[in-house]
Amino acid sequence: MSLRIGIPRALLYYRYFPFWKTFFETLGFEVVVSRPSHWGIIERGFKFADDDTCIPMKMAFAHTIDIKDRIDLLFLPRLLSVDGKTCSCPRLAGLPEMLKYSMSGLPAILDPYVDERHRNSSLFHSFSEMALALGKSPKEIKQAFQKAESAYELIQKRMEGGEKLPDLFEDVGKKNQTSQRDLSRKKIAVVGHAYCLYDPFFNFDLLRILEEAHASVYTQERVPKEVIDSEIREFGKDIYWDSGREILGASLHFLRSSEMEGLIYLTCFSCGVDSMIEPLVRHRAAENGKTLYLCLMIDEHTGATGVLTRMEAFIDLLERRRRRR
């Protein structure tokens, strides 16, 4: 029987899952993902995690509890820096320890460490070390890694083209059905950490609400990397957080484009990265004035009705603006 490798449906799952899945499956492992978030799962994690952390981290605790008894190995990579320049939020880097020391009965943890800001650390290197230790040959590993890279790139391309997570993940080959070429649709940009945007349980299905209100939703993945780079260059401050940099760059780009009618920054209470990036986006949005801006902060007391009402109000306002024009 092949080893079962568990991936919590949380945090970086929402970005790198296609990569990880392809890598492990090509090497002959079985990949087990925790079930989609629902209250039953999440509640248990919230009891475990402490109050000084953010909701996405607490959700990672919950998803770990959900799979820990069904797997042989728990996969929690530490991707401190994968591009040699930016770095991840420190909470993400400390996740394996935080989990290890606050709950018992965890399977062994695979935590390849990647910090490409240092010369002798690279994604490939860490992943091969991990797979070598699991008894795979260098040749197999290399093939699996290449395959994983192209799977990841494919997903990135498709997201740039407008397809959305997480439907994409479930079945890497599935074609996107909804075409959004309808010109009467309102264009709304939504930015935030991938795990905030794409976990419908976390955001009360925000993206669906918007689409049902006849909006075309643009997320930061639509903005090509080069555009983000040039926006940040022009902004003049080198943002060192990978996610923060992307969110700020994409927001600046959306605010610049004359087509975007609204911009929503989706964030969670006590996110350190957002606490510094959101004020910058808000300021730009106010200066520019033509895009309607909303910061939607989710905390533990946020309810579905609250989000729905705020979205309705936001869309109303957009429509009124349209009519005035």
Partner: peptide, 20 residues
């Protein structure tokens, strides 16, 4: 500094607030 703590971001955010 250059992360990961947010102290490296204080400069832009604080300047913006103080100027406002």
């Amino acid at each position: 500094d250059h992360g990961p703590c947010r102290v490296g971001m204080y400069d832009v955010v604080m300047q913006q607030i103080l100027k406002d």
